[in-house]
Structure formats: C-alpha cells, structure tokens
Design a protein around this nucleic acid. Structure first.
Lengths: 107, 107
DNA sequence: GCGCAATACATAGGCAGCCTATGCTTGCGT
DNA sequence: ACGCAAGCATAGGCTGCCTATGTATTGCGC
C-alpha cells in the first residue's frame, strides 16, 4: 500500500520511532513495519537518507557503536527534535481532521 | 500549513469534493478551503493539472458550460471515479490508523 | 472612464522527496 | 564454502505539487 501517501509524513514517523528508543537505522525500519502492522515497509534507500536529513536539520544526533560485532549508527532525539515531534503530532492531527472533514462532505 | 503533506492525498480530496457536486475548478478550490477550515488553500496551478490528471485517468468527466457570462469546465464523477473514491476513503482510514499507531508508541 | 480585484481557465518550469538499484562488510546457519 | 540476514551508504530517476505567468470577463470603487 505504500506509495507516496507517506510523502511529507515520513520525518514525523521517524522522529516518533527514534523517540521511543529504536536506535539505529535498520531497527527503525523494523519498528516502523511492526508498529504499522506491515503498512509501512520502507526500503533502506528511503530511511537512511531521511535519517541523514534529520541529522542535518539538527533534529537527531548520531553516534557510532558496535553491538554483536557489527557497527551501528545509533540515533537519538535532540531537544529541537523533541519539540519538532510534538509540533508534528499536532500538525498531523490537524491534517487528519481536515481530510476527514473534506471526505465527510462526500457521502 | 499546506506543504507537501498533501502529496498523494490530493486526488482523493478532489474526488470527494467533486462527488458532492462542486462542479468547476474554481469552485473546487473554494469548497476545499471552506470544508477544511482554511487548512487546504491550494493554488490554481495545483488544482487544474490535478483535475486534468483525474480526467485522463477516467475518474472524472468534464463538459463546458456558461454561467454568469463566464465559461466553466464542469466536472462530475464517473463510475470508475465513484469506486476510486470509496477505495480511497478506505485506504485513507488505513493510512491514518497506521500513522496513529506509530505515533502512539512515541509518548 | 479607468484601474483593480475576483472569477475562471491554462501551462511551463522548478524543486523536494521518496524509490529503485547497486555496492560494501560482517555474522550465522548448514 | 555458501547463502542469507543484518547493517550502512549513495547515485539517479520519477512523480507531483508549487511558483510564476498568461489570457479573458465581470463588477466594483472613484
């Protein structure tokens, strides 16, 4: 089902996942898939650049770690990112309400 | 607030508005703005190409009319468009539920 | 009478962002 | 040995929304 309906909402989803301690990129992909009940099964080519974008914007910070012999780039929310998450959740609710309002008129 | 969060959802919104008898393009813009309480205030350069896309896909059909001295291209849903609207509403609900599920884990 | 805003349509061009494809390394199971 | 999952990364393309611009008509204010 995932096409580009997610466009513009991905950053918020990533912030939410990182906020609850998902850590590194691959885990973010898994968490996103599991929490959405397989609705958001996003490829690495989507997630990694998105995380880099978030870091460039200062919403997340990353550091290298090694776990189970594998290097991992672990992300966590910055203060700015926390605020962005709260704002994003508010904006999402407003957006969803607006869409619902338009759709309701249809039937 | 309108950025590209609407990306991928615009077609559904247009189908919904046309379904409830909005008619021509300019009226669609107004209806969208009013029903969403000013959240969706989209420029003509967004709406007209979108309506043309929908027509090319066979979801709407158009015809020229003249009202109040002005020419108007009036749109109405096709049978395929009706089904697309129903499907789109279902998909939207699933999408919104998925986003909510991911966001809930965050707090 | 004139200018300006709103109504109404249309299209070209730009840009952002998600996806596809590809490549690399390491660890584990068989 | 071999394959596959885990893990990271980037280049390139495509799609679709927005900006800017153009046309024409009606109606209002001055």
């Amino acid at each position: 089902m995932n096409n580009d309906v997610i466009r513009g909402h991905l950053d918020l989803l990533l912030l939410a996942v990182v906020a609850s301690g998902a850590g590194h990129g691959y885990a973010v992909i898994r968490a996103l898939r599991e929490r959405s009940d397989d609705a958001f099964d996003l490829p690495e080519g989507t997630i990694y650049p998105a995380l880099h974008r978030l870091e460039q914007q200062g919403l997340v910070v990353s550091s290298w770690t090694v776990a189970e012999g594998r290097r991992r780039r672990v992300y966590r929310l910055s203060g700015v990112g926390q605020r962005a998450l709260v704002d994003g959740q508010r904006d999402w609710r407003a957006f969803a309400r607006s869409v619902d309002a338009v759709l309701e008129g249809a039937r």
